[in-house]
Design a protein around this nucleic acid. Structure first.
Lengths: 124, 124
DNA sequence: CAGTATCCAAATTGATACTG
DNA sequence: CAGTATCAATTTGGATACTG
């Protein structure tokens, strides 16, 4: 099993000699991480819900990114001993603290899409 | 010659069906892009200066990322017909508009590094 | 439901050497 | 100075099939 990460000069560059921006990227620097986190800003979500909200990513990618966010203390994963299985993801306080970054991204992206004359999905 | 991009579900996912956050990532979603842009917030910089400010990235990577930012209208590249050659990079108005995102990243990263008890470099 | 395992193709990057 | 070319080594991602 592989453990990708992407958008990271090979895991934790910012933790060694990088600047503050690099440090942030070492945590949210995965293609899907900001998107996943953004969706989680609204509250707990189940795995399938996240998949539906992120149609451009495969379940595999979502799982991988979620696992890394969990390892970094950004996301909390809760498994409910039920049948069928139920797993919920939510942002930890540390994850919530990234809200300003996420919102800034959403704001810019929305303006960019509009200026681009191609508002695809509200998404939020 | 290759034209990588990274941190992008294979070039422009956000432009097709993604949400606002994805749109933003399609532009700044490269490991080094935010870092490079952050440095350029302070003003024009020459290629070597950017290299020095981003020691964790190779010149090749910096060139590649800069070319993409240029293609996306985020960065302006100016070549001065001198000997030795002089090339300056600076943010375009569109690039400047990403300032809030970059600053939010720097703020969070700084706090994260400190909480991590390992403030490496001020960087800004 | 919520993943995980595998296989494998494709993309990305570092290192190194070279140029206008 | 400011890159670019090339090659090799990884890393990454998608597809598909399977499980508790």
């Amino acid at each position: 099993m592989d453990m990708p990460s992407e958008l990271k000069p090979r895991r934790r560059p910012g933790g060694r000699t990088g600047c503050a921006v690099e440090a942030t990227l070492s945590v949210i620097g995965g293609v899907w991480k900001p998107v996943l986190m953004f969706h989680l800003l609204k509250g707990k979500l189940r795995f399938n819900a996240l998949c539906r909200l992120t149609p451009n990513a495969t379940a595999r990618m979502i799982t991988l990114q979620l696992r890394e966010l969990e390892a970094d203390g950004i996301v909390l994963r809760t498994v409910y001993p039920e049948v069928p299985p139920k797993v919920e993801y939510e942002l930890t306080p540390l994850g919530q603290s990234l809200k300003p970054v996420l919102l800034a991204m959403r704001t810019w992206g929305a303006a960019y899409q509009e200026q681009l004359g191609k508002t695809i999905e509200p998404c939020a």
